[in-house]
Design a binder for these strands. Structure first.
Lengths: 349, 349
DNA sequence: TTGAAAGCGCTAACAA
DNA sequence: TTGTTAGCGCTTTCAA
């Protein structure tokens, strides 16, 4: 049945193709192709006629169709897998990558991992079906060996934040263990001996590294790590708040807390405020965040540099796309201790 | 010249096509197509043989190639233009859209507008060249009439946060004027008569709306708006800080400040802290933000709901993609006053 | 400088 | 249930 009220009784105007442009300009289709792709060998007069036709028809080149036959088959797009596009840390990485790729005409498919291994597989597969020119991935699955056929096909691949397992590929990471060790030493230097660790899910590589770095540094300084309360599996603000609350209200509360991730830091901050101990118990958090210097006390953090991680990842994926076949490398973006007050509180008494 | 050190002397293994799968499974190419697209009319035995071949070859369907011939030509992707992917407000919108589209197999190209009209045109054009199935756009150009050919072709189009000019299309927006008016009335109710407005660039529609709503509400309550210092053009934290500082240090400083955007609010917070007036001068900010309740005093805000904006935009673009031809509509997501302390400070003296 | 013909990997249409 | 042929919009190849 035909809809009578349709504003386009004969259907909407069809999207023009190169054929239409060619016909209107009175040239062959290949000439239009040359103009659209800025290829040489077209007289200026012809070029102008073609351009006028494209404007008159509102023609836009179809990149997908072109890539089908083009040697090298570039879709001018990459797949970017982030912890979550809603996470400010991810957002900054994303932005740095966009800034580096946009000038090259490469668009970014962005997806959220949610630290779910099944999603990782499904989203990577979705990227591959779209024949992206490269993959920049945050991962959670135990192994990335499933990507071996893709590395064999020389698909450019860069891992960010976490290193792949069972696969040799470029990775751009923060010095998680070293950053956490810096936090530990900072707290020790301010006299703390009763420290506590609040950490994320142990299936997350960075969480494991931070835990290891923190505890090892304490061990090196003669603290019996077995005495250190270490809570794992804190993945959001509320669980962190409750864990911190339990610690603070225990028999023998810590005089300093290290929180391994910004949501965990927020939870710890809330617990400290609820117990009125914000100025008594020291806190150092991994990850910097907005307004960290506007709360009372300011929060001392081990800051990561998502913009530099993103920029480096973009540089690597572009190099690989451009044919770089050097062995895979691991790039470490150093973290940075930012002193703001909470980490410099001495132990009570 | 052949590279001797190449790990693949005969070149890397080629990516398999449907032909390869068909040959390996001993079936016709169309049968493979049926299996890959879950079309009926394939015996279970054949289906299994095909699936085994795809796994053995590590085959992934090429969506771009398929879409070329498919009726309807769906790329299963949309273009999303955000103020900036690094902006947490944008990130939440993005996430809500991803959550609604991913189950349908639709991927998202995300780009940053940076409130630059030239970028708007260039990025929309890039989306069109990729033949996205729809566009979800934040805009800054004076007019969106350049998209008329696309609406004529029935390209699904949804505007978020800001409404298009010169084009009739769905839009999902916050009640900016009403939210700002709520802020004005809230401050008046607490006794303020000397108020100040700190606003963003006037070429941004939401900034104009918030300014208008704020000043009109004051006018309705008998305040001579000509006496209200209204600073425009504040696009980042530092410029807002300086503007707020100038106001606070002026002859006749305001007793209450309304900041029209979160970065501006941050700047105002800093100025208040620097002058030690955080507990004397009231502040209401447009936009909620993380830790707004953890600073001292807590910051009273007019909260937007980016998750609801994103969810509604996704619902609309999906409906349009599915053939909804109803007249364009404007959807308003209400803002919400969240009382936290800074907005309830009475005028000094 | 220009264009005709073939074909990229897939789906539509139709035949077997 | 299965396969064959044509063709989507473009680029490649090669001839004019």
């Amino acid at each position: 049945m035909t809809t009578m009220s349709n504003r386009y009784p004969s259907g909407p105007p069809a999207r023009p193709t190169m054929r239409h442009v060619a016909a209107l300009a009175g040239v062959g289709i290949k000439t239009v192709s040359r103009v659209m792709n800025d290829e040489p060998g077209v007289s200026e007069a012809t070029r102008q006629r073609v351009l006028q036709a494209t404007e008159q028809l509102n023609y836009e080149l179809d990149l997908n169709a072109g890539n089908l036959r083009r040697t090298g088959r570039r879709t001018q797009s990459i797949g970017l897998l982030l912890p979550s596009v809603a996470n400010p840390f991810s957002g900054e990485i994303h932005r740095a990558i966009e800034d580096a790729l946009a000038p090259r005409g490469i668009a970014v498919f962005a997806s959220s991992l949610d630290d779910d291994a099944d999603r990782e597989r499904a989203l990577v597969s979705a990227f591959l079906r779209r024949r992206v020119d490269g993959l920049v991935l945050t991962i959670i699955a135990r192994s990335q060996a499933y990507l071996m056929p893709e590395t064999a096909r020389q698909l450019p691949l860069v891992f960010i934040d976490r290193e792949p397992v069972g696969l040799d590929a470029d990775a751009v990471v923060t010095d998680n263990a070293e950053g956490a060790a810096t936090a530990a030493r900072h707290l020790l230097r301010h006299g703390h001996r009763k420290l506590a660790y609040l950490g994320d899910r142990p299936d997350i590589q960075t969480a494991r590294e931070r835990r290891r770095g923190f505890l090892e540094a304490l061990g090196h300084e003669g603290i019996a790590t077995s005495t250190i309360p270490a809570v794992d599996g804190l993945h959001d603000e509320e669980s962190a708040r409750q864990a911190a609350l339990a610690l603070l209200q225990s028999e023998d509360p810590p005089t300093a807390i290290f929180s391994s991730q910004n949501l965990v830091t927020f939870g710890a901050m809330r617990a400290l405020r609820e117990t009125g101990r914000g100025h008594e118990v020291a806190l150092v958090g991994f990850d910097d965040f907005k307004l960290a210097d506007m709360v009372e006390p300011g929060i001392t953090v081990i800051a990561q540099h998502p913009d530099r991680i993103g920029a480096k990842a973009a540089e690597r994926i572009l190099a690989r796309i451009d044919g770089d076949r050097e062995p895979a490398e691991r790039y470490v973006v150093p973290s940075e201790l930012i002193v703001r007050g909470s980490g410099e509180i001495p132990p009570a008494n």
